[in-house]
């Protein structure tokens, strides 16, 4: 029975565009699914392997720029960003991993944060290559309609979900958890912690890069402030996972849904709209206090609370 839930979910999502949703609704759905991908990717490294990254914008941005520069400099379709980003983001992840993975806990988090910022500043200054702060604009987007974009990001999300579920249930998943729980114990029990942390980072980075490639193609415009953003990408990624549930399969998707809807809601409010970052901050604090394992992780607790109210 439980195995059928994802399949039913996928079929439902695949049929959704046929209902005839508004362009706005489709846009929201696409954003939710894209953030689910980023959240799932982060969750593999941060949630399962315990390496909390504050710099996932580095991979999102590099994916987006790989696609953008292909279009800008070589004049080929930005969709070629998908295969090429595997190499570019992969190499980037290996470099970042080499520098940051020797650090532990908060030091790793700070180092990744710095990496994201370094890449943002670099992208701003390499004007000849990236167009700097002017950004990259795709003159003519592939489709005017949203449907195909929807199916593409849905396919990426399904692939990501299945891949991560498979990894987590395998030997690799046990190694990730062992590293998260106690790196010294893991190492002394025969687990090559450096290697497996690098593997987790590599997979997480490439999947996040895919979301970046998609973003370039879908939005048609990027600049360093947008795709290498510390707050709007790196921090929101962590919030998506924390709100939904760290180290849970469905947490990132639930977190993405809530965060995207909340962002839309708050932004549409007349006066407080501009304070959405503060409101997100308050939300994060509330979540950490009352639902430290996120909505999915603390679902049993949430149910008993709601039942008591009723």
């Amino acid at each position: 029975m439980r195995g059928l839930v994802p399949i039913a979910g996928i079929i439902l999502l695949a049929l959704l565009p046929l209902v005839g949703l508004s362009t706005y609704m489709m846009h929201i759905l696409i954003l939710v699914i894209m953030w689910s991908v980023i959240g799932m990717a982060w969750n593999l490294l941060g949630g399962y392997c315990g390496q909390v990254s504050f710099g996932h914008a580095a991979f999102f941005g590099t994916g987006a720029y790989t696609a953008g520069i292909l279009y800008l400099k070589l004049g080929v379709s930005a969709w070629w960003g998908f295969p090429l980003s595997i190499v570019v983001v992969g190499v980037m992840a290996l470099i970042i991993g080499f520098i940051c993975l020797r650090l532990r806990g908060p030091f790793f988090a700070l180092a990744t944060l710095a990496m994201g910022e370094v890449l943002r500043v670099t992208a701003e200054n390499l004007r000849g290559f990236t167009n700097g702060t002017l950004g990259i604009l795709i003159q003519k987007r592939t489709w005017v309609e949203k449907t195909w974009y929807y199916y593409i990001i849905l396919a990426i999300a399904v692939f990501t979900f299945l891949l991560i579920r498979r990894l987590v249930n395998s030997r690799l998943g046990y190694y990730f958890l062992a590293i998260r729980e106690d790196q010294d114990a893991a190492e002394s029990l025969g687990i090559n912690t450096t290697l497996y942390k690098t593997v987790a980072l590599l997979i997480s980075a490439i999947l996040t890069g895919f979301a970046g490639v998609f973003y370039m193609n879908y939005m048609g415009y990027i600049d360093p402030e947008i795709v290498y953003a510390l707050h709007d990408i790196s921090i929101i990624t962590i919030m998506v996972v924390m709100v939904g549930g760290v180290a849970t399969f469905w947490g990132p998707a639930v977190g993405a849904l809530i965060m995207v809807l909340l962002a839309e809601l708050i932004r549409s409010l007349p006066r407080i709209g501009t304070a959405h970052q503060s409101l997100f901050g308050i939300l994060l604090i509330l979540i950490i206090i009352f639902l430290p394992n996120g909505i999915v992780g603390d679902f049993p607790k949430l149910k008993t609370i709601l039942r008591r109210r009723a």
Binding site: Y174, L177, E181, D182, A185, A186, S188, G190, I191, N192
Partner: peptide, 29 residues
């Protein structure tokens, strides 16, 4: 991890279980 692979295993004076994992998952790892 190389030394463990060669056949040396140890326990810790201050125990280091994989805290949030079950006993069986600890041993499976």
């Amino acid at each position: 991890h190389r030394i463990c692979r060669l056949g040396v295993a140890r326990t810790f004076q201050v125990v280091k279980p994989l805290q949030r994992l079950t006993v069986i998952d600890n041993v499976m790892a």
